[in-house]
Simulated assay, not measured.
Amino acid sequence: MKKHPTPVLTAEQVPYNQDKPRSCVFNAGVAKIDGEYLMVFRNDYEYLKRTLFSGTNLGIARSQDGINWSVDPEPIITADIIREQWAHIFPERFMPSEIRRVYDPRITVFDGKIILCLAMDTPHGVVGAIASTTDWKNYECLSISTPDNRNMVLFPEKVNGQFLRLERPFPIYGRGKPEAFEIWSSKSNDLRYWGDTRLVLASEEVPYSNSKIGPAAPPIKTEKGWLCTIHAVEKVEEELNSWHDNWKKIYHGGLILLDLEDPTKVIGLAKEPLIRPELKHEIEGFRGSVIFPCGMILEDNNEVKIYYGSADTCVGLVTASLEELLDTIEPIN
């Protein structure tokens, strides 16, 4: 595996919000469409105090090689855009007027259609949304989950005739253990109504996590199974580098392998993290020691590009051969 030594996208490359100090770009969904790399990134701007920013939007960057990126002149998604475009499909009492923030995008290209999985903050909980677009200007709402759910990723093809997604609900009371969240799956016939929900991987099954886990980038299909990245949190005693106090979590990027015919079944797990926070831009930033994979591209030559949020501040990149990644995974009986 090879880490790119510096971030591939930083706040300095974003042409808007430059008058807002201490901004971050991270947790970006990435896809390759007609030979062009597209990155939809979260842009938190104007850090105020503690863990608060004055605003969040989603921007889009483009690249010919997956390494050097240029950012479009305006953001493509804001809370105002979603509120306006989705106003006709929700009762005024609740949605969409109460959408406060849209963030953490994931991209899946499905039969030529661009599908986005998004997180949205509301006064009544965090919901996961699925939307489609053809022009990066208009967004059709396909589905919104109940609170609290996020980190949704959509499989790039139907499995046994159904759409499939991975997700991470985060119950506080039912689990009985703070921040012990897991990876679940749900199925749908139309991308709108979801059900047949199953637990896929529990947090205690990941050796390098003593806290929550969750899906990361949309899966890629291999001969051996569906290759999936995950994020896994390790709580530590010492305080880590951060813009705010009391940050004591290390986020690792890991790998699991799901059965091709039944992706609710984990057939393999890498017992060690694939990506650990080691470089300066990974251990220093808004929240240091955070690795959060969000995009994974399988190239024609079997090279895999994995893009990750780094310290909740910028976007990093690692590359490896598909064979190298699969070799890290140990079978689960």
Rank of each mutant, 00 (worst) to 15 (best):
142 L>M: 10
193 Y>W: 04
163 F>H: 13
206 V>R: 01
171 P>Q: 09
206 V>S: 04
195 G>A: 10
159 V>G: 05
184 W>H: 14
198 R>L: 10
198 R>Q: 15
141 C>G: 00
188 S>R: 06
188 S>G: 09
191 L>I: 06
182 E>H: 15
162 Q>S: 12
147 P>R: 01
197 T>Q: 10
156 P>H: 10
143 S>N: 11
212 K>R: 12
161 G>T: 00
193 Y>K: 11
192 R>N: 03
140 E>W: 00
168 R>A: 07
138 N>K: 13
163 F>C: 09
183 I>W: 03
157 E>M: 03
172 I>A: 14
156 P>L: 08
181 F>E: 12
148 D>C: 04
166 L>A: 04
203 S>A: 14
144 I>T: 12
199 L>W: 07
210 N>A: 01
195 G>H: 11
181 F>W: 15
164 L>F: 15
211 S>E: 02
217 A>S: 15
214 G>C: 01
177 K>C: 02
190 D>E: 09
220 I>W: 00
201 L>Y: 03
163 F>W: 14
174 G>M: 05
187 K>V: 07
143 S>F: 13
194 W>A: 09
215 P>S: 03
214 G>K: 05
174 G>P: 00
180 A>M: 13
187 K>P: 00
177 K>R: 14
170 F>M: 13
179 E>S: 09
186 S>D: 15
170 F>W: 15
219 P>F: 04
196 D>E: 15
210 N>G: 05
136 W>L: 15
167 E>H: 14
208 Y>D: 07
176 G>V: 10
161 G>H: 01
159 V>P: 00
172 I>F: 14
180 A>P: 00
166 L>S: 06
178 P>L: 14
178 P>V: 12
204 E>P: 00
181 F>T: 09
144 I>N: 03
215 P>C: 00
192 R>F: 07
195 G>Q: 10
208 Y>I: 00
215 P>G: 05
177 K>T: 09
136 W>P: 01
214 G>V: 06
140 E>M: 03
180 A>L: 04
141 C>Y: 01
177 K>Q: 12
158 K>M: 14
165 R>V: 12
184 W>C: 05
205 E>I: 06
137 K>N: 13
219 P>M: 02
146 T>D: 13
211 S>D: 09
165 R>M: 15
214 G>Y: 07
147 P>M: 06
162 Q>F: 10
153 V>L: 07
207 P>V: 10
147 P>F: 06
203 S>Y: 13
166 L>H: 10
140 E>C: 01
185 S>I: 05
155 F>H: 09
201 L>C: 02
140 E>G: 03
194 W>T: 03
205 E>D: 14
136 W>Y: 13
208 Y>F: 15
167 E>N: 09
157 E>K: 12
190 D>T: 01
183 I>D: 05
160 N>H: 08
183 I>A: 08
215 P>F: 02
168 R>K: 11
163 F>G: 04
190 D>G: 04
146 T>G: 11
195 G>R: 02
195 G>C: 01
171 P>G: 11
205 E>H: 09
147 P>H: 06
149 N>W: 00
171 P>R: 05
176 G>A: 08
163 F>A: 03
169 P>S: 13
199 L>H: 04
200 V>C: 10
188 S>E: 11
216 A>C: 08
153 V>A: 10
173 Y>W: 11
176 G>W: 02
180 A>V: 06
143 S>E: 03
212 K>P: 04
139 Y>N: 01
175 R>T: 15
